[in-house]
Protein backbone atom coordinates (compact mmCIF):
# COMPACT_ATOMS: atom_id res chain seq x y z
CA UNK A 1 0.00 0.00 0.00
CA UNK A 2 1.34 3.39 -0.88
CA UNK A 3 0.48 6.83 0.45
CA UNK A 4 -2.84 7.92 -0.90
CA UNK A 5 -2.67 11.63 -0.32
CA UNK A 6 -0.42 12.70 -3.14
CA UNK A 7 -3.12 14.22 -5.28
CA UNK A 8 -5.23 15.62 -2.54
CA UNK A 9 -7.55 18.53 -2.99
CA UNK A 10 -7.87 20.66 0.14
CA UNK A 11 -10.34 23.30 -1.00
CA UNK A 12 -13.32 21.18 0.06
CA UNK A 13 -12.24 21.01 3.68
CA UNK A 14 -13.61 24.40 4.87
CA UNK A 15 -16.90 23.73 3.10
CA UNK A 16 -17.15 20.36 4.80
CA UNK A 17 -16.47 21.91 8.20
CA UNK A 18 -19.17 24.53 7.65
CA UNK A 19 -21.54 21.76 6.59
CA UNK A 20 -20.82 19.89 9.81
CA UNK A 21 -21.81 22.92 11.85
CA UNK A 22 -24.85 23.71 9.77
CA UNK A 23 -26.33 20.24 9.63
CA UNK A 24 -28.02 20.28 13.08
CA UNK A 25 -29.94 23.39 12.05
CA UNK A 26 -31.02 21.69 8.86
CA UNK A 27 -31.99 18.60 10.81
CA UNK A 28 -33.99 20.64 13.29
CA UNK A 29 -35.98 22.35 10.59
CA UNK A 30 -36.49 19.12 8.68
CA UNK A 31 -37.77 16.82 11.40
CA UNK A 32 -39.47 16.98 14.73
CA UNK A 33 -37.44 14.09 16.16
CA UNK A 34 -34.07 15.70 15.53
CA UNK A 35 -32.81 14.78 19.01
CA UNK A 36 -32.77 11.11 18.05
CA UNK A 37 -30.71 11.79 14.93
CA UNK A 38 -28.44 14.17 16.80
CA UNK A 39 -27.76 11.57 19.46
CA UNK A 40 -26.71 9.06 16.84
CA UNK A 41 -24.50 11.64 15.15
CA UNK A 42 -22.95 12.45 18.53
CA UNK A 43 -22.17 8.80 19.06
CA UNK A 44 -20.57 8.68 15.62
CA UNK A 45 -18.54 11.79 16.48
CA UNK A 46 -17.12 10.23 19.63
CA UNK A 47 -16.33 6.96 17.91
CA UNK A 48 -14.75 8.93 15.07
CA UNK A 49 -12.12 10.36 17.37
CA UNK A 50 -11.33 6.84 18.53
CA UNK A 51 -11.30 5.18 15.12
CA UNK A 52 -9.02 7.85 13.72
CA UNK A 53 -6.58 6.97 16.50
CA UNK A 54 -7.13 3.27 15.87
CA UNK A 55 -6.39 3.82 12.20
CA UNK A 56 -3.07 5.41 13.13
CA UNK A 57 -2.23 2.26 15.07
CA UNK A 58 -3.74 -0.50 12.95
CA UNK A 59 -3.89 1.11 9.54
CA UNK A 60 -0.67 3.05 9.48
CA UNK A 61 1.61 1.20 11.88
CA UNK A 62 0.10 -2.20 11.15
CA UNK A 63 -0.43 -3.16 14.79
CA UNK A 64 -3.81 -4.82 15.13
CA UNK A 65 -5.75 -3.88 18.23
CA UNK A 66 -8.91 -5.62 19.39
CA UNK A 67 -8.84 -3.82 22.72
CA UNK A 68 -9.79 -0.28 21.90
CA UNK A 69 -13.07 -0.46 23.79
CA UNK A 70 -10.88 -0.95 26.86
CA UNK A 71 -9.00 2.29 26.13
CA UNK A 72 -12.34 4.02 25.76
CA UNK A 73 -13.42 2.53 29.08
CA UNK A 74 -10.25 3.65 30.85
CA UNK A 75 -10.71 7.14 29.46
CA UNK A 76 -14.36 7.32 30.47
CA UNK A 77 -13.82 6.00 33.98
CA UNK A 78 -10.66 8.06 34.59
CA UNK A 79 -12.41 11.24 33.60
CA UNK A 80 -15.50 10.40 35.63
CA UNK A 81 -13.36 9.76 38.69
CA UNK A 82 -11.16 12.81 38.15
CA UNK A 83 -14.05 15.21 37.65
CA UNK A 84 -16.66 13.81 40.02
CA UNK A 85 -14.55 12.40 42.82
CA UNK A 86 -11.29 14.34 42.71
CA UNK A 87 -13.03 17.59 41.79
CA UNK A 88 -10.88 18.46 38.81
CA UNK A 89 -12.40 20.84 36.25
CA UNK A 90 -13.56 19.22 33.03
CA UNK A 91 -11.11 21.22 30.92
CA UNK A 92 -8.18 19.80 32.92
CA UNK A 93 -9.56 16.30 32.64
CA UNK A 94 -9.63 16.75 28.88
CA UNK A 95 -5.85 17.12 29.01
CA UNK A 96 -4.89 14.72 31.80
CA UNK A 97 -7.10 11.76 30.90
CA UNK A 98 -5.75 11.26 27.37
CA UNK A 99 -2.22 11.27 28.77
CA UNK A 100 -3.16 8.63 31.35
CA UNK A 101 -4.82 6.48 28.70
CA UNK A 102 -1.80 7.01 26.46
CA UNK A 103 0.38 5.63 29.24
CA UNK A 104 -1.92 2.61 29.45
CA UNK A 105 -1.36 2.32 25.71
CA UNK A 106 2.36 2.16 26.38
CA UNK A 107 1.75 -0.69 28.79
CA UNK A 108 0.10 -2.65 26.00
CA UNK A 109 2.67 -1.44 23.54
CA UNK A 110 5.36 -3.12 25.58
CA UNK A 111 4.31 -6.72 24.87
CA UNK A 112 3.58 -5.61 21.31
CA UNK A 113 7.31 -5.29 20.76
CA UNK A 114 7.55 -9.04 20.75
CA UNK A 115 4.07 -10.21 19.84
CA UNK A 116 2.90 -9.81 16.26
CA UNK A 117 -0.04 -10.04 13.93
CA UNK A 118 -3.00 -12.06 15.12
CA UNK A 119 -1.26 -12.82 18.39
CA UNK A 120 -1.18 -9.13 19.10
CA UNK A 121 -4.83 -8.72 18.16
CA UNK A 122 -5.84 -11.43 20.57
CA UNK A 123 -3.52 -10.17 23.30
CA UNK A 124 -5.19 -6.78 23.11
CA UNK A 125 -8.52 -8.58 23.23
CA UNK A 126 -7.35 -10.18 26.47
CA UNK A 127 -6.39 -6.72 27.67
CA UNK A 128 -10.01 -5.72 27.05
CA UNK A 129 -11.27 -8.51 29.31
CA UNK A 130 -8.70 -7.67 31.98
CA UNK A 131 -9.64 -3.99 32.04
CA UNK A 132 -13.33 -4.83 32.38
CA UNK A 133 -12.57 -7.07 35.32
CA UNK A 134 -10.33 -4.47 36.95
CA UNK A 135 -13.08 -1.85 36.66
CA UNK A 136 -15.37 -4.17 38.59
CA UNK A 137 -12.65 -4.96 41.13
CA UNK A 138 -12.03 -1.29 41.96
CA UNK A 139 -15.67 -0.92 42.91
CA UNK A 140 -15.05 1.76 45.51
CA UNK A 141 -14.23 4.22 42.77
CA UNK A 142 -15.96 2.84 39.74
CA UNK A 143 -19.21 1.65 41.27
CA UNK A 144 -18.41 -1.92 40.22
CA UNK A 145 -20.82 -3.73 37.97
CA UNK A 146 -23.69 -1.40 38.87
CA UNK A 147 -22.16 1.35 36.74
CA UNK A 148 -21.35 4.95 37.47
CA UNK A 149 -23.28 8.13 36.99
CA UNK A 150 -21.26 10.97 35.50
CA UNK A 151 -21.79 14.70 35.77
CA UNK A 152 -22.42 16.99 32.82
CA UNK A 153 -19.50 18.62 31.09
CA UNK A 154 -18.77 22.26 31.90
CA UNK A 155 -16.60 23.97 29.36
CA UNK A 156 -15.35 27.43 30.39
CA UNK A 157 -18.36 28.08 32.58
CA UNK A 158 -20.82 26.84 30.00
CA UNK A 159 -22.72 23.70 30.96
CA UNK A 160 -23.18 21.29 28.11
CA UNK A 161 -26.40 19.58 28.93
CA UNK A 162 -28.35 18.39 25.92
CA UNK A 163 -27.81 16.68 22.59
CA UNK A 164 -27.75 20.00 20.80
CA UNK A 165 -24.81 21.37 22.81
CA UNK A 166 -23.14 17.97 22.86
CA UNK A 167 -23.14 17.97 19.10
CA UNK A 168 -21.16 21.16 18.80
CA UNK A 169 -18.70 20.17 21.51
CA UNK A 170 -18.14 16.68 20.13
CA UNK A 171 -17.77 17.74 16.53
CA UNK A 172 -15.41 20.60 17.39
CA UNK A 173 -13.16 18.10 19.12
CA UNK A 174 -13.65 15.55 16.37
CA UNK A 175 -12.54 18.04 13.74
CA UNK A 176 -9.50 18.94 15.83
CA UNK A 177 -8.71 15.24 16.24
CA UNK A 178 -9.00 14.61 12.52
CA UNK A 179 -6.75 17.57 11.70
CA UNK A 180 -4.17 16.43 14.25
CA UNK A 181 -4.27 12.91 12.86
CA UNK A 182 -3.80 14.24 9.34
CA UNK A 183 -0.82 16.28 10.48
CA UNK A 184 0.69 13.18 12.07
CA UNK A 185 0.19 11.14 8.94
CA UNK A 186 1.71 13.82 6.75
CA UNK A 187 4.72 14.31 9.00
CA UNK A 188 7.91 12.31 9.27
CA UNK A 189 6.28 10.35 12.08
CA UNK A 190 3.52 9.16 9.78
CA UNK A 191 6.03 8.01 7.20
CA UNK A 192 7.94 6.12 9.89
CA UNK A 193 4.72 4.38 10.91
CA UNK A 194 4.03 3.37 7.33
CA UNK A 195 7.58 2.16 6.91
CA UNK A 196 7.15 -0.09 9.94
CA UNK A 197 3.88 -1.39 8.57
CA UNK A 198 5.26 -2.15 5.14
CA UNK A 199 8.38 -3.90 6.35
CA UNK A 200 9.77 -3.91 9.82
CA UNK A 201 13.08 -5.25 8.65
CA UNK A 202 13.50 -2.60 5.99
CA UNK A 203 12.54 0.11 8.44
CA UNK A 204 15.03 -1.16 10.95
CA UNK A 205 17.73 -1.34 8.31
CA UNK A 206 17.08 2.31 7.48
CA UNK A 207 17.92 3.25 11.04
CA UNK A 208 14.44 3.53 12.51
CA UNK A 209 14.16 2.62 16.17
CA UNK A 210 11.23 0.27 15.83
CA UNK A 211 10.61 -0.20 19.52
CA UNK A 212 10.39 3.52 20.13
CA UNK A 213 7.98 4.18 17.28
CA UNK A 214 5.73 1.22 18.00
CA UNK A 215 5.39 2.40 21.58
CA UNK A 216 4.78 5.92 20.33
CA UNK A 217 2.05 4.66 18.03
CA UNK A 218 0.32 2.96 20.94
CA UNK A 219 0.70 6.09 23.04
CA UNK A 220 -0.85 8.33 20.38
CA UNK A 221 -3.66 5.90 19.67
CA UNK A 222 -4.34 5.62 23.39
CA UNK A 223 -4.51 9.39 23.66
CA UNK A 224 -7.14 9.60 20.94
CA UNK A 225 -9.14 6.87 22.65
CA UNK A 226 -8.79 8.60 26.00
CA UNK A 227 -10.06 11.81 24.51
CA UNK A 228 -13.04 9.98 23.10
CA UNK A 229 -13.54 8.37 26.50
CA UNK A 230 -13.79 11.74 28.26
CA UNK A 231 -16.46 12.90 25.82
CA UNK A 232 -18.22 9.54 26.05
CA UNK A 233 -18.52 9.71 29.83
CA UNK A 234 -19.66 13.31 30.03
CA UNK A 235 -22.20 13.17 27.25
CA UNK A 236 -23.78 9.85 28.19
CA UNK A 237 -23.88 10.59 31.94
CA UNK A 238 -23.85 6.89 32.74
CA UNK A 239 -21.12 4.34 32.15
CA UNK A 240 -20.93 0.68 33.03
CA UNK A 241 -18.83 -2.27 32.00
CA UNK A 242 -21.64 -3.37 29.68
CA UNK A 243 -20.93 -0.32 27.53
CA UNK A 244 -17.43 -1.48 26.70
CA UNK A 245 -18.10 -4.94 25.43
CA UNK A 246 -15.50 -6.87 23.48
CA UNK A 247 -17.86 -6.61 20.52
CA UNK A 248 -17.39 -2.84 20.53
CA UNK A 249 -13.66 -3.29 19.89
CA UNK A 250 -14.51 -5.51 16.96
CA UNK A 251 -16.91 -2.87 15.68
CA UNK A 252 -14.17 -0.25 15.82
CA UNK A 253 -11.99 -2.41 13.61
CA UNK A 254 -14.97 -2.94 11.31
CA UNK A 255 -15.44 0.82 11.07
CA UNK A 256 -11.81 1.31 10.07
CA UNK A 257 -12.00 -1.52 7.60
CA UNK A 258 -15.26 -0.44 5.98
CA UNK A 259 -13.85 3.04 5.62
CA UNK A 260 -10.64 1.80 4.09
CA UNK A 261 -7.55 0.79 6.06
CA UNK A 262 -4.79 3.35 6.15
CA UNK A 263 -6.74 6.50 5.42
CA UNK A 264 -7.93 9.02 7.96
CA UNK A 265 -10.95 10.06 5.93
CA UNK A 266 -11.75 6.40 5.47
CA UNK A 267 -11.93 5.91 9.23
CA UNK A 268 -14.27 8.89 9.50
CA UNK A 269 -16.50 7.69 6.69
CA UNK A 270 -16.53 4.13 7.97
CA UNK A 271 -17.52 5.23 11.46
CA UNK A 272 -20.35 7.35 10.14
CA UNK A 273 -21.52 4.57 7.87
CA UNK A 274 -21.52 1.81 10.48
CA UNK A 275 -23.03 3.89 13.28
CA UNK A 276 -25.76 5.32 11.08
CA UNK A 277 -26.51 1.99 9.51
CA UNK A 278 -26.69 0.05 12.74
CA UNK A 279 -28.65 2.57 14.76
CA UNK A 280 -30.75 4.34 12.19
CA UNK A 281 -31.15 2.82 8.76
CA UNK A 282 -31.61 -0.78 9.79
CA UNK A 283 -34.13 -0.04 12.60
CA UNK A 284 -36.08 2.20 10.25
CA UNK A 285 -35.88 -0.38 7.49
CA UNK A 286 -37.18 -2.93 9.97
CA UNK A 287 -40.01 -0.58 10.98
CA UNK A 288 -41.06 -0.24 7.37
CA UNK A 289 -40.85 -3.96 6.82
CA UNK A 290 -42.75 -5.00 9.96
CA UNK A 291 -45.77 -3.16 8.63
CA UNK A 292 -46.02 -5.80 5.95
CA UNK A 293 -44.68 -8.94 7.55
CA UNK A 294 -44.07 -10.45 10.92
CA UNK A 295 -40.47 -11.08 11.92
CA UNK A 296 -38.22 -11.51 14.93
CA UNK A 297 -36.96 -7.97 14.84
CA UNK A 298 -33.71 -8.20 16.79
CA UNK A 299 -32.19 -11.10 14.97
CA UNK A 300 -33.34 -9.70 11.68
CA UNK A 301 -31.48 -6.46 12.37
CA UNK A 302 -28.31 -8.32 13.28
CA UNK A 303 -28.68 -10.47 10.19
CA UNK A 304 -28.99 -7.49 7.85
CA UNK A 305 -26.04 -5.84 9.52
CA UNK A 306 -23.85 -8.92 9.12
CA UNK A 307 -24.96 -9.39 5.54
CA UNK A 308 -24.18 -5.80 4.54
CA UNK A 309 -20.78 -6.07 6.17
CA UNK A 310 -19.96 -9.33 4.42
CA UNK A 311 -21.09 -8.08 1.01
CA UNK A 312 -19.13 -4.91 1.58
CA UNK A 313 -15.93 -6.76 2.37
CA UNK A 314 -16.35 -9.11 -0.55
CA UNK A 315 -17.27 -6.51 -3.17
CA UNK A 316 -15.56 -3.38 -1.85
CA UNK A 317 -12.45 -4.58 -0.04
CA UNK A 318 -10.86 -1.14 -0.41
CA UNK A 319 -13.55 0.36 1.76
CA UNK A 320 -15.64 3.47 1.33
CA UNK A 321 -12.64 5.67 0.74
CA UNK A 322 -11.38 3.34 -1.94
CA UNK A 323 -14.83 3.41 -3.52
CA UNK A 324 -14.72 7.19 -3.57
CA UNK A 325 -11.23 7.19 -5.12
CA UNK A 326 -12.40 4.78 -7.80
CA UNK A 327 -15.37 6.96 -8.58
CA UNK A 328 -13.23 10.07 -8.77
CA UNK A 329 -10.72 8.53 -11.10
CA UNK A 330 -13.54 7.20 -13.23
CA UNK A 331 -14.89 10.73 -13.79
CA UNK A 332 -11.49 12.31 -14.22
CA UNK A 333 -10.54 9.97 -17.03
CA UNK A 334 -14.06 9.54 -18.22
CA UNK A 335 -13.90 8.66 -21.90
CA UNK A 336 -10.77 6.55 -21.68
CA UNK A 337 -11.87 3.17 -20.42
CA UNK A 338 -10.97 4.07 -16.86
CA UNK A 339 -11.82 0.70 -15.41
CA UNK A 340 -8.52 -0.74 -16.48
CA UNK A 341 -6.47 2.08 -15.07
CA UNK A 342 -7.46 1.45 -11.51
CA UNK A 343 -6.61 -1.81 -9.92
Amino acid sequence: MKGRYDDENLKWIPILIIAVYLSPFLLKSATFSYKYYLYILNMAGIYMILTVGLDLLSGFTGLMSLGHAAFLAIGAYTSAILVDQAGLPFELSLIITPVIVGLCGLMIGFPALRIEGMYLGLTTMGFGFIVKRLIIAFRDWTGGSAGLQVSKATLFGFTISNDWNNYFMIYTFAIIAIIVARRIVKSKLGRVFMAIRDSEQAAQASGINIAKYKMLSFFISGMFAGFAGVLFAHTNHFISTDHFDILLSVYFIVMVLVGGVGSIYGAVLGTLFIVLMENMFIPLFKDTLTQYMHLEAGDFQAFIFGLIMLLFIIFQPMGLYGMWLKMRIYWKLFPFNPRKRFT
Binding site: F32, Y36, Y39, N236, F238, H243, A297, A302
Partner: peptide, 18 residues
Amino acid sequence: DHGYNPMKAVVAAKKLIE
Protein backbone atom coordinates in the same frame (compact mmCIF):
# COMPACT_ATOMS: atom_id res chain seq x y z
CA ASP B 1 -34.00 -4.10 20.68
CA HIS B 2 -30.97 -3.25 22.81
CA GLY B 3 -29.00 -6.48 22.70
CA TYR B 4 -28.12 -5.98 26.39
CA ASN B 5 -26.02 -2.99 25.46
CA PRO B 6 -26.74 0.22 27.41
CA MET B 7 -25.57 2.34 24.50
CA LYS B 8 -28.17 0.79 22.21
CA ALA B 9 -30.77 1.07 24.95
CA VAL B 10 -30.25 4.82 24.91
CA VAL B 11 -30.60 4.93 21.14
CA ALA B 12 -33.76 2.83 21.34
CA ALA B 13 -35.21 5.05 24.06
CA LYS B 14 -34.46 8.17 21.99
CA LYS B 15 -36.10 6.57 19.01
CA LEU B 16 -39.20 5.58 20.94
CA ILE B 17 -39.57 8.94 22.62
CA GLU B 18 -38.57 11.26 19.78
